[in-house]
Amino acid sequence: MSQGRLVVLAGPTAVGKGTVAEHIRAEYPQVWISVSATTRPPRPGEIDGLHYHFVDDETFERMARDGELLEWAVVHGRAKYGTPRVPVEKAIAAGQWPLLEIDLQGARQVRASMPEALFVFLAPPSWDELVRRLIGRGTESAEEREIRLTTARAELAAAEEFDVVLTNDNVKRVAADLVSLMGSPSVSSRNEP
């Protein structure tokens, strides 16, 4: 059985990471998508165990302390997010290419512990489109949107840290491109200009 390879999808808030992952989940069932743990409350329509493992602060702290998380971070100064380690390691050992949909802080932690992973940055078509998407979600207060947009500016500047940059101007196409990369043996190290 061949060894799998971890694929990390990261990018700024509201770029559509979750939408792309949802499309892959629906259209490419062969892709194993990691389910993160978070301390934030569910958004409308989110299902515990499918979209996230919704846990309280005490449970999350225990998971982090006991080394059960591959990566974790406090995002936007508010909620904690992290990737349970064991399911990812099992998927890789089974020859799968697990997909992690995480933030920039988490991607940097994964790079430190698993540099052999494929790191994909999801970029917006433009700053204005990113702002439109964030406002259009309607899930954050004006204050929360400002915090997220400040964070997004810094996150956009980090695109050069990634092996591949995909522009999310069409969810179906970018999902297909990402799945194609996952099966491409030619993407084995950082793409250099």
Rank of each mutant, 00 (worst) to 15 (best):
M1W: 07
G4K: 02
R5V: 14
L6D: 09
V8K: 14
K17D: 01
A21V: 02
E22M: 05
I24E: 15
R25M: 09
R25Q: 11
Y28A: 14
Y28Q: 04
A37Y: 00
R40N: 04
P41D: 11
P41T: 11
R43P: 09
R43D: 08
E46L: 03
I47Y: 15
I47W: 13
Y52K: 13
H53G: 00
H53M: 11
H53E: 12
V55R: 01
D56A: 02
E58D: 11
T59F: 15
R62F: 07
L70T: 07
E71K: 08
V74T: 13
H76Q: 07
R78E: 10
A79I: 12
G82S: 06
P84Q: 10
V86Y: 05
V88M: 04
E89H: 06
E89S: 13
K90V: 01
A91W: 15
A93G: 05
P98K: 15
E101L: 10
E101V: 13
E101H: 12
I102N: 08
Q105R: 11
Q109D: 08
V110E: 08
R111A: 01
A112I: 14
M114N: 11
P115V: 04
A117I: 06
V120Y: 00
F121Y: 15
L122H: 12
A123S: 14
P125K: 06
W127A: 03
D128Q: 13
L134P: 07
G138Q: 07
G138M: 06
T139Q: 08
E140G: 04
S141A: 06
E144S: 10
I147L: 14
L149M: 15
T150K: 15
E155G: 09
L156W: 10
D163L: 03
V164C: 03
N168A: 09
D169N: 04
D169Y: 13
K172V: 07
K172Q: 11
K172P: 05
R173Y: 11
V174M: 02
V174I: 10
V174C: 07
L178M: 08
L178F: 03
G183R: 14
S184V: 15
P185L: 14
P185C: 08
V187P: 05
V187H: 06
S188A: 06
S188W: 15
R190C: 02
P193M: 01
